[in-house]
């Protein structure tokens, strides 16, 4: 316990003060994740239960955020939809961060043609818009949850790989890596136990930033009708669903789902940016 407090206080003195912005937005992120995990349990109504006698209603005691055009409770659908809305980008981030980090460390370790080759491939991948690949994937594999997830997993690799590569190249040149080589440790061990461990905070920061963008791109494919299909609840899909009612003055569905997307993207981006700039500052 005392070592823990000592460690925390030493961290505090090292960075000046606890970053309040990270604290606030990190808490928001935490709540959103909890919502994705437990949301369906908290939903006051079954999210797919229609009520044709109460369609497109405004907020009321019965339906806190009103109902959609089929009379489904919007709050329940938002809570239930959080799960798919987070699961998609979650998979995208895990897959792209893993693949990107592996490629980046391999390139940094080997250098030479592998490094140059990876750089070229990444540059080409940067030029391709993610949504376009997701649309193509939906055309090939059929619309649904997996097509955009697969496509975006691939598209997000270069964002992780570029940043991690430059950090890994820096580590590669450190004397401790040479000491490990001289000690006869295997390349695999040096890469996983030493280089990966030292670039891991950067991977996490990049993944956090990537999660925000992936959530938006994933929502966009659903919005376009290529991702998650109705009647499943998903935020991008709900924004799209609510469009027809916008002109009738029933803003609640598009607006509330859109607000949640914005809140999530902004929170994750801010936390990720803060983390990565702090890591950059401390070496």
């Amino acid at each position: 316990m005392s070592t823990l407090t000592a460690r925390l206080s030493s961290r505090r003195t090292r960075t000046g003060s606890v970053d309040k912005v990270v604290l606030v937005f990190g808490t928001v992120c935490g709540f959103l994740i909890l919502m994705a995990v437990f949301g369906p349990l908290l939903a006051p109504h079954p999210p797919s239960q229609t009520d044709i006698l109460a369609t497109s209603q405004g907020p009321s005691g019965q339906h806190l955020l009103g109902t959609d055009s089929l009379g489904r409770d919007i709050l329940s659908r938002l809570l239930a939809g959080a799960r798919l809305s987070f699961l998609g980008p979650g998979i995208i981030v895990v897959v792209s961060a893993t693949a990107g980090t592996a490629l980046a460390i391999a390139a940094a370790w080997h250098g030479g043609w592998l490094d140059r080759g990876l750089n070229r491939v990444l540059n080409v991948m940067f030029a391709v818009p993610g949504i376009l690949v997701a649309v193509l994937a939906a055309a090939v594999f059929g619309a649904g949850f997996w097509a955009p997830v697969l496509a975006l997993s691939l598209v997000y690799i270069p964002y992780v790989a570029r940043v991690v590569r430059s950090a890994a190249v820096r580590e590669r040149r450190m004397p401790y890596v040479e000491a490990c080589e001289l000690a006869g440790l295997s390349a695999w061990r040096i890469c996983t136990r030493h280089i990966l461990r030292n670039v891991f905070p950067i991977v996490m920061a990049q993944a956090t930033i990537g999660f925000g963008s992936a959530l938006m791109d994933f929502g966009a494919t659903s919005f376009l009708g290529l991702g998650v299909q109705p009647p499943s609840a998903e935020w991008g899909l709900m924004v799209s669903d609510g469009r027809s009612e916008l002109l009738d003055g029933a803003l609640q569905q598009s607006l509330s789902a859109g607000a949640l997307i914005v809140l999530t993207v902004v929170s994750f981006n801010i936390v990720g940016e803060r983390l990565s700039s702090r890591i950059g500052a401390s070496g």
Partner: peptide, 20 residues
């Protein structure tokens, strides 16, 4: 070779893994 030749580097700050 590791058992025959070892080296101590100049920079005491960079020659140890900061997370080990």
């Amino acid at each position: 070779k590791a058992r025959e030749i070892q080296m101590v580097f100049q920079d005491p700050f960079g020659s140890l893994d900061p997370r080990q």
